[in-house]
Amino acid sequence: MTKWGQAAAAAFQFLSRFPVNANIDYSPTLFRQSVKFYPLVGAAIGLVVWGGAAGFTYLLPPLPAAVLTLILWVGLTGGLHLDGWMDTADGILSYRSREQMLDIMKDSRVGAMGVLASTLLLMLKLSLIYSLLINGLNYLGLLLLPLIWSRWFMVHAMATWPMARGKDGLAGKFNGLDKGQIWATLLIAIVLSGVAASIAPLIYMDNHSLMIALLGFITLPLAAWGAGTWLARRLNATLGGLTGDTYGALNELLEVVALLMLVLLHNHM
């Protein structure tokens, strides 16, 4: 397998539950090389979720269809990012010292704050998916964008903010990303978003679909960048850097923010 093939396979094995049967010798170098494919993993998950949402909506009323869509969404990630969201909530909302917060986040057990945070997040995500489904499937091609840009921002965060535990822990495996990998990740995210945003106008061939797609292509990345930057700065100020758990928390927040933007665009255009 080529170096790029190994990096892509590593990204899919790490971030998803797609059956990628490849024997890979994981190393910090391979972890760093794999990040450029994170938006591609997001697009692949989004494509399956989109197809699932279309099928569920055809067979069922919108609410159970939305629930099954969310189950599929979480299942394809193995709950990886949701686990980071819960661990981060347990640590940050404990209001302890920095060292104690990091210790709490490392603990595999989930506390009350983690349960509350995950419940509220999933309720909000479910309501947003439901809102999109009851308005029809015309713009569900844009459903790929939240998954693409949330994963792009994780790479941006790795390169922008320091590691709270230095080279220790999962985050330390990504320490030292070079600019080439960062720019490659951004380019892949832009190309994938352009393809996703063009799906609805190509199918429905009307000006309204084109306007929604264009605004989604522009506003969703900006919303993800703005919300992600705000949270990453807060986490950095509190923890003295970011961790693997906080990358997952960032991903979860940005998926919800981007979904919210989609609902706003659909309801006000």
Rank of each mutant, 00 (worst) to 15 (best):
M1C: 06
K3M: 09
A7C: 08
A9W: 01
A10Y: 05
F12L: 10
F12I: 04
F18C: 04
P19V: 05
A22I: 11
D25I: 03
F31Y: 14
S34F: 11
V35L: 12
Y38I: 09
I45P: 09
I45S: 08
G51M: 15
A54E: 09
G55R: 08
L59E: 00
L59C: 07
P64Y: 13
L68M: 14
L76I: 01
D83S: 11
G84A: 12
D87A: 05
T88W: 08
T88A: 10
G91F: 06
I92T: 00
I92K: 00
S97A: 04
Q100V: 03
D103F: 09
M105A: 11
M105D: 04
R109N: 12
R109G: 10
G114L: 02
L116Y: 02
T119V: 15
L124T: 07
I129Y: 10
L140K: 03
L143E: 02
L144A: 05
W149N: 05
W152N: 01
W152Q: 02
M154N: 12
V155P: 01
H156A: 12
A159W: 14
M163E: 06
M163T: 03
A164L: 13
R165K: 14
G166R: 09
G169Y: 06
L170M: 15
F174V: 00
N175A: 08
L177S: 03
G180F: 12
L187R: 03
I190L: 15
L192E: 00
L202Y: 14
S209Y: 06
I218G: 09
T219C: 01
T229L: 14
R233V: 07
R233E: 11
L235V: 00
N236C: 04
A237Q: 07
L239E: 00
G241L: 05
L242P: 09
L242I: 13
T243A: 15
D245E: 10
D245A: 11
Y247M: 11
G248S: 13
L250C: 12
E255T: 03
V256H: 05
V257H: 04
V257T: 01
L259K: 05
L262T: 08
L265F: 14
H268K: 06
M269L: 15
